[in-house]
Simulated assay, not measured.
Amino acid sequence: MNGPWDVHSDCTPDCAAPALPRVPATRIARRGAAFARTVRRALTDGERTAEPGRLRTHARALLDALDIHVEGAAALTSGGGTGTLVVANHISWLDILALLAVEPVTLLAKREVGGWPVVGGLARRAGTHFIDRTHPRRLPHTVRDVSELLAAGRSVAVFPQATTWCTAEAGTFRRATFQAAIDAGAPVRPVTLDYRQQGLPSTVAAFCGEDTFAGSLRRVLAARALTVRVTAHPVLWPLDGGLDRRELAALAARAALGGLPVTAVTGGGAARPAAPVPHAPPRDTPAHV
């Protein structure tokens, strides 16, 4: 059932296409077997999976089993007394593994992610906080929970687009979770995730529309030279810059979705984007909150 907070993506499974020919069937089989073994090891760790070191190890092992290389950021958080609100675009279930492989953080994800095969189980064991978008009255509670986590020094990663798109340039950022950073006085780290095959932009990893996990996994298993690039943009400091959640979301989206440089807000006045964020406007009014 769709709720008033649902976001609808124009992307469909037809958007997912490889940039290079498939690998041979023998390699697909080897990857599938390695992935299954790695999943079993991760899921048998139980509650220990939430330990940062184990979480990073499992995420990296799952990507290694799929022959997916992670490049880019060495860290996502900024240090200091509070946690960092990491805000990233959303393309695939692989996004979760990529972020955790770089730096284990607490994830905030839509409720449906908890039911996804493999990733859902790992996300639950990793202590992910799930959002039920069919009950919009829960949103203030979610914002408060995230703010408390940040104030306690725990970094939180969210996907403000609230759904998946096939490229890093589409969609828009919802504003609500940015309020948590303002309330906690926490920095915001915009992050761009994009997928390539031998340097060529690729949508093969996209998990959109009515796609199934099995169908997406088959494409990923067959993908040649797949790389996920994690780009960490300059940190935004909402309190020092006097930013409200609208301005903060716009600045973060400009960096994460447009890949355009944004001056970090460090205390000398708020940076402002010089041009509109290059993405389509949201199709449902509640996305403006």
Score class of each variant (00 low, 15 high):
Arg245Val: 03
Glu210Ser: 15
Leu108Tyr: 02
Pro187Met: 09
Arg56Ser: 11
Pro278Gly: 15
Ala19Gly: 10
Leu193Cys: 07
Ala264Phe: 00
His135Val: 12
Gln197Met: 13
Gly127Gln: 06
Pro136Leu: 11
Leu85Trp: 03
Ala151Trp: 01
Phe178Glu: 00
Leu139His: 06
Ala181Cys: 13
Ala25Val: 12
Ile28Trp: 05
Arg254Pro: 00
Thr167Asn: 15
Ala256Asp: 04
Gln179Met: 07
Leu107Glu: 03
Phe213Asn: 10
Pro13Tyr: 06
Ala42Gln: 01
Ile91His: 07
Ala184Arg: 00
Gly199Phe: 11
Ile131Gln: 01
Thr49Trp: 01
Arg111Pro: 01
Asp14Phe: 12
Pro104Arg: 01
Ala256Phe: 02
Arg196Trp: 15
His141Ile: 15
Tyr195Glu: 10
Phe173Val: 07
Ala206Val: 06
Ala162Cys: 14
Ala25Pro: 10
Val188Ile: 07
Arg40Gly: 09
Val86Thr: 08
Thr172Gln: 13
Ser202Met: 15
Ala274Asp: 15
Leu150Lys: 02
His90Glu: 09
Thr266Tyr: 00
Thr49Asn: 08
Gly114Ile: 08
Val156His: 01
Leu85Ser: 02
Thr12Gly: 13
Leu239Ile: 06
Arg31Met: 03
Pro13Leu: 11
Gly80Glu: 09
Leu150Phe: 08
Ala123Asp: 01
Ser9Ile: 03
Val146Gly: 00
Arg133Val: 05
Trp5Ser: 10
Asp14Gln: 14
Ala126Ser: 08
Ala73Ser: 13
Leu260Pro: 00
Arg60Asp: 05
Val23Tyr: 06
Pro282Gly: 07
Leu221Ser: 04
Gly267Ser: 07
Phe173Asn: 02
Thr172Gly: 12
Leu257Thr: 04
Pro104Tyr: 02
Arg22Ile: 08
Ala270Leu: 02
Arg144Gln: 10
Asp211Gln: 11
Gln161Ser: 13
Glu210Cys: 14
Ala75Ile: 15
Leu260Thr: 09
Val23Trp: 07
Val102His: 00
Thr192Gln: 07
Arg124Asn: 08
Arg229Tyr: 13
Arg111Tyr: 06
Leu97Phe: 09
Ile96Arg: 00
Pro24Asn: 11
Ala249Phe: 00
Gly259Tyr: 02
Ser92Arg: 07
